[in-house]
Simulated scan of single mutants.
Amino acid sequence: MTLFLGYDPGGKGKNGVAAIRVISDTPKILDKATVRDAAEALVWLNARAKTAVALGIDTLLAWSPRGGRACDDALRRKYGGSSIVAQNSLYSSMTLNGAIVAKRLGLPVYESHPKLLLRVSAEHAIRKIYHEAVAESGADHEGDAIVAAWCAAMGHNGRWTVDLFTYIEDDIELVMPRARYPWFETV
């Protein structure tokens, strides 16, 4: 069984990390935590990285010189809602911490959007696991990290074939070479 890691970058004391295995498309949580900052997240993730095959991150892994990304515009058109924020409106802890961890960990990396996915997907197993993790910890950071790891597994294992970075034409700069943004359906 293959190990996948997840990271939800946030502000001080709001960085979620998770390690999961996926069995029949259902995540089995091996470990999760909320840590202080990206440095602590790196220590936690590095301790598990030797046996992991990929990292899912709830952050932007591609930036556009236009101020907005076409993949975000497409998601906003299809699903609506306010959780898809323009890249220039995001706080630095999310964008910078995510990029630092992606670069330093050195695993294949996959962007995720846990809140949107949970709202629009019919994947009941991940929704249940997310809500259990949030109820246990009292915050959504660990739950978002679990969902990010699961999204990485779905993309890495070829279960989701849509890559929002390549599916939608855009002038983007990848944070990491070969970063991907797997999604469960066309948008």
Rank of each mutant, 00 (worst) to 15 (best):
G138T: 14
K115C: 00
W44E: 01
L5P: 04
H156Q: 11
V187Y: 05
S137G: 01
T95N: 09
S121L: 09
Y79H: 15
T59G: 04
Y79C: 12
G98F: 12
A135F: 06
G16C: 05
I126C: 09
G16V: 05
S112N: 01
L117I: 08
V17H: 02
L107Y: 02
L90M: 15
N97A: 15
S64R: 06
G56N: 05
P182G: 10
A179D: 09
W150L: 06
S82F: 13
A152Y: 02
A122K: 14
K115P: 00
D170P: 06
M1E: 09
K103R: 14
L90R: 14
A38G: 03
T59N: 08
S83Q: 12
L107R: 09
W63V: 13
V22N: 03
S121I: 01
I146C: 11
V134D: 04
E173F: 14
A148R: 10
L61P: 05
W63A: 11
V35I: 13
L45E: 05
A135Q: 11
S83G: 04
T51G: 03
P9N: 07
W63C: 01
L174F: 04
T166H: 12
L117C: 01
N46F: 09
F184V: 05
G56W: 02
C151R: 04
A47H: 06
T186Q: 10
A86C: 02
A49D: 10
E173N: 09
G98S: 02
A33K: 07
D163V: 11
L3H: 10
K32D: 07
P65V: 10
R159N: 04
A133L: 04
I23N: 15
H124Y: 03
D72N: 05
S82P: 00
I126G: 03
L117F: 15
E132P: 00
D72H: 09
G11D: 14
A62E: 02
T2G: 00
L55V: 08
E142V: 11
A152H: 02
F165C: 02
R69K: 07
G158V: 15
S137T: 15
R77I: 11
A38M: 02
A38L: 00
R104D: 05
S24N: 14
N46V: 00
D8R: 03
R119K: 15
S64E: 03
I20V: 15
V109H: 03
I20R: 08
Y79W: 15
M176T: 11
V147G: 00
I172D: 10
A47R: 12
T186M: 04
R119S: 15
Q87I: 10
